[in-house]
Write a protein that binds this DNA or RNA. Structure first.
Lengths: 347, 347
DNA sequence: TTGTACGCGTTATCAG
DNA sequence: CTGATAACGCGTACAA
């Protein structure tokens, strides 16, 4: 197990000084053509690569972006990561990912860990629990220490940083309008509790869409759940009762799992999708496409979101020291994809 | 934007030497109770955390694991990552993820990048193209440089390193046997070309299962596709013709996408699943569970796989320098999950 | 009990 | 043209 090649080793081998080697490899004009060639040939032969860690220490830059997300087994985050990774790679940045598991303490821990020099900046989507606790000191502290932060998706308005969002309100509006256009009037929504920003905004879009069509908003047709990403048994049971107890001709859900669960229960209740009940869902996954019937969705573009977030962060990282602080919020558009679950026009 | 606190700054502030501060913070008995308390209080107040980069440089250890995978928008890899992350975190390691996009050059680039000091070892699943090209120098070079490497899933036998695999042959056997047990005899398989190890092994398991039941293996019932993770239009068309041209009562597929695509085409061909044709698929995703009918699967346990891979790597990283080199190959068991697609007993 | 010196691998500056 | 030196932030052996 030979040790990695360093400048020092090359220098010793070729009997020159370390700085000569360094300069030669960086094509400094100070070094004679002769020695330069010799050193470069040697370095190439033994595949010398400068040590990143040493460079980071010297430059006080790691060229590494830290990603803090609630979980990874989730199409949306996965796509965002892909987008971030692309953009980062294009700009010669690395990416470190940490998972909070929707746990506040772990999120704090992860941020502290990465803040200790491992990372030049953060891209963050907050844990469920963090939003609930309403405690964002770990984020603001990082910002105070001069760490650029970009938040996406699960954000908090008050934190002073760049943000990337999908236009949840508009997306929901578009989805619900599609239901209205296809004749639905008794439209339910399955959403999250209000402390989850995206749930709140989507609920708002739902209400606005109804109002714009002069349809009365009925409180009992709004189901707010604690869950965000999954749909456990308890959650499933709530949806079941909700669907059984209400007379509806459409369901709008703020995520794919809610939609799939609703579809199953409707089926079990003997209601046909889309003949009896239409479905539109916010979505990022593959499920909607492959379900029978396939589900119409308000599609988020996670990859674009990731790219944008990375772009904003890199901009901050590479801006001149003295530039004025300025925060932007970027919106990523959603797209309505019509599939079988809204094929049937209600009268 | 204040600078991060360092030992030097604390030392200056408290008018002691840097090493005194260092020792005090590490609870060295050399330092008087008095100054120790003073220094620790100060450090805590201003939230001092040692700089990781400096520590890495000093210790020649980064406590970081590099993951190199083909893609991330894929349930299986996502679960593996989760497992790795867990185990890494439990042992105080960080994780850097890079994506090869199934591209050979990018895989090489990523490895070189991370090998330059960013990482103590690698967990790798090879790119499609790499397997095809049969060129693994980037991996062996890393190993030669003393970087521990653990390969999983898409591995190459010849490379001397730890490996984590699922028992593809056994898994396939189990799946196909389930079809045989439920009365199917005209069982097709949709698999990958042989250069993909997992495809090859699963095909082998399929054949062995048939033979153990005395069922003749028919070459025309074996469809080998180039795709691995996705199923594009071309791939879909091939499956369609394959299903149309052959008289079968069951399909076994080596991944979920093939199964879903097959299910669609069978449907379109007027064949009912499971009444006319049963389906069993290798799988990691959520699709199988939610499809109607839901699909029986040979489930891989990606998270376990990730945990095991990380465990092996960390073992190598923390073993004493002089320990003898020894490589282990761990197998992760698969589980058969019976769902609706094999509910119908053929006669 | 505290401080000095050194090294991890690199680059930049300055001296020769 | 080449080399010595300092610095990035830390920990530790050794000296005071």
């Amino acid at each position: 197990m030979k040790r990695k090649l360093t400048l020092k080793l090359i220098a010793k081998e070729l009997d020159v000084s370390i700085s000569t080697v360094s300069k030669a490899l960086r094509d400094s004009a100070e070094i004679s053509e002769d020695t330069r060639q010799k050193i470069k040939a040697f370095a190439k032969l033994y595949n010398y690569k400068p040590n990143n860690i040493a460079l980071s220490l010297k430059n006080r830059k790691t060229r590494t972006i830290g990603i803090i997300i609630p979980q990874i087994v989730h199409h949306f985050f996965t796509k965002v990561i892909k987008g971030i990774e692309q953009m980062a790679r294009e700009h010669n940045y690395n990416v470190i990912i940490t998972l909070s598991n929707n746990d506040f303490d772990k999120e704090v821990l992860n941020m502290e860990l990465l803040a200790n020099g491992s990372t030049d900046g953060f891209i963050v989507s907050l844990a469920n629990e963090t939003l609930h606790k309403d405690d964002f000191r770990h984020v603001t502290e990082a910002i105070d220490q001069g760490m650029p932060v970009v938040m996406f998706d699960r954000i908090v308005d008050e934190i002073p940083c760049d943000k990337v969002l999908i236009d949840d309100r508009e997306g929901a509006k578009m989805g619900v309008r599609h239901l209205l256009k296809t004749g639905c009037r008794k439209i339910a929504i399955i959403t999250t509790k209000d402390y989850v920003t995206i749930g709140k905004l989507r609920t708002k879009g739902y209400i606005e869409a109804l109002e714009s069509y002069g349809v009365r908003v009925q409180k009992e047709l709004i189901l707010k759940l604690d869950n965000i990403d999954r749909c456990d048994d308890e959650c499933s049971a709530k949806i079941k009762h909700f669907l059984k107890d209400n007379d509806i001709d459409a369901v709008f859900t703020v995520n794919e799992m809610f939609a799939v669960t609703a579809a199953r229960h409707l089926n079990a209740l003997g209601k046909n999708v889309p003949t009896d009940v239409s479905i539109v869902s916010f979505s990022d996954g593959e499920l909607s496409k492959h379900l029978i019937p396939s589900l119409s969705t308000v599609s988020q573009h996670g990859e674009l979101m990731g790219r944008k977030a990375a772009e904003l962060l890199i901009n901050k990282l590479e801006r001149p020291e003295d530039e004025v602080e300025e925060y932007t919020t970027a919106y990523i558009d959603t797209t309505l994809i019509e599939r079988e679950s809204t094929k049937k026009i209600k009268n």
